[in-house]
Amino acid sequence: MFPFSFEWIWDMGHMVFHGGLWYALSIMGLGLTYCIIKAAVDTAKGKGGYHH
């Protein structure tokens, strides 16, 4: 999974596969982080809150 495991080789397969994988993981991670931070900021600002 990581370049330090012994079966790792820097070939096309590994680069494409792990490129895709980490790309997807970063988008998910960044998206989630953004939502959480923004929610925290919104809460701190005391925005509307629950609207029912």
């Binding site: 939502c35 925290a40 809460t43």
Partner: peptide, 20 residues
């Protein structure tokens, strides 16, 4: 949903749902 943080979180997640 009464908890403001969760309310905002849910709202923000909906906003960028297209990315997910």
């Amino acid at each position: 949903d009464k908890v403001p943080f969760f309310h905002h979180l849910s709202h923000n997640m909906h906003e960028i749902m297209a990315v997910f």
